[in-house]
């Protein structure tokens, strides 16, 4: 995979937005990694650090009324789709002012007003949902697009394979993005995905499939742009496999003994998507590094505030246990 996609395709404003999104995701996840270790965060969290270029590269093509269905590792998709970062942080802390009023937590962060159909605790849960959102767009005659993100683990779920076929049969405006980070929990794709590349599975459903470097924002952006344009124009679904790595374990607390020694350290040095982005825009002379440093500072400040506010926010009340089950009952 060579670096063929070029930063020159994007406006400076778009580049700065993309960088800010990636940096926000990174800062959010790194901070959660630190805070989780203090024991203050309930339950478990699955961090997206290392994969930021995928969520950002794909979702930067989507408008507020396009749809995204995400995974248990969903913070990055939510941030890229425009979910309120402070509301997300409160949600992860289980607070009443969280994006889902503390009812969902890390694995169910959703904001339908932003077209975010939810993180999903069920591996392979999202692809059928985007078939529905795509059908909705088609029946209502809008040009909305629905994108599902699924991991390499989810790529082996029947739901994902059924959904690719259904989307092809119904010719839906849907894009299936497979984030192949090499591990389904502790199980390597070397074990669990046999035969050919995941992207080649698209052939079996009669839809286009490509593999891109998931560390390369520009490669993801270019491939997603083509797939989303095709979907909007009535050309049906596509599959994009993004080969990538995660910096943290399956969930926080995972000692990752299944990984090679220094695997993550080497990845951080050699494949980091933020470093890649900075190097590419700087070498192309598009953005002054000082501007990016300023974004880093602003993001740091935002995440600091988000954590402080989340810690201080009130818990849900006992009555909240029973609300929001039905619209009417």
């Amino acid at each position: 995979m060579t670096e063929v996609a070029s930063p020159q395709e994007l406006s400076k404003e778009d580049l700065l937005d993309a960088y800010r999104t990636m940096r926000t995701i990174r800062e959010f996840e790194e901070r959660l990694h630190t805070e989780f270790a203090t024991g203050e965060i309930p339950g478990f969290v699955h961090l997206y650090a290392g994969e930021e270029a995928i969520a950002t590269g794909v979702i930067s093509h989507l408008g507020a009324d396009d749809y995204v269905a995400s995974t248990h590792r969903g913070h990055g998709h939510a941030i890229a789709k425009g979910c309120d970062v402070k509301g997300m942080m409160k949600e992860i802390y289980g607070k009443a002012e969280g994006l889902c009023h503390g009812k969902g937590g890390s694995m169910h962060i959703a904001d339908l007003d932003k077209g975010m159909l939810g993180a999903n605790g069920i591996v392979g849960g999202g692809p059928p949902l985007v078939c529905g959102a795509g059908l909705s767009a088609k029946v209502r005659g809008t040009n909305q697009v629905a994108v599902s993100f699924t991991g390499d683990g989810g790529s082996n779920q029947g739901t994902t394979l059924e959904s690719m076929n259904l989307a092809s049969v119904w010719n839906l405006p849907v894009v299936f993005v497979i984030e192949n980070n090499g591990y389904a929990e502790a199980t390597s794709t070397n074990f669990s995905v046999k035969g050919i590349d995941i992207a080649k599975r698209a052939d079996g459903f009669g839809i286009p499939g490509v593999t891109v470097d998931g560390h390369d924002f520009f490669a993801v952006h270019e491939a997603a742009g083509e797939a989303i344009r095709r979907a909007r124009e009535g050309g049906g679904p596509s599959l994009i496999e993004c080969k990538v790595n995660r910096y943290f374990g399956h969930f926080e607390g995972d000692a990752q003994t299944y990984r090679a020694e220094n695997e993550v350290e080497n990845l951080r040095c050699e494949k980091d998507c933020l470093d890649n982005f900075r190097r590419r825009v700087a070498s192309a002379g598009l953005i002054d590094e000082g501007e990016l440093d300023r974004i880093d500072e602003e993001v740091k400040q935002l995440i600091n505030e988000a954590v402080e506010e989340a810690k201080a926010a009130p818990d849900p009340k006992a009555d909240d246990l029973l609300t929001d089950v039905y619209v009417s009952y």
Binding site: G125, P128, V130, C131, G132, L135, A137, V139, E162
Partner: peptide, 28 residues
């Protein structure tokens, strides 16, 4: 005709699609 669809025998996909469609403006 545009609102009555056959499906493949893929209950997971189309029942899930009903959920996704309902969350995005249809009454499937």
């Amino acid at each position: 005709p545009g609102r009555v669809l056959d499906t493949p025998i893929s209950e997971s996909a189309f029942v899930g699609a009903a959920a996704g469609a309902a969350a995005s403006g249809l009454r499937p």
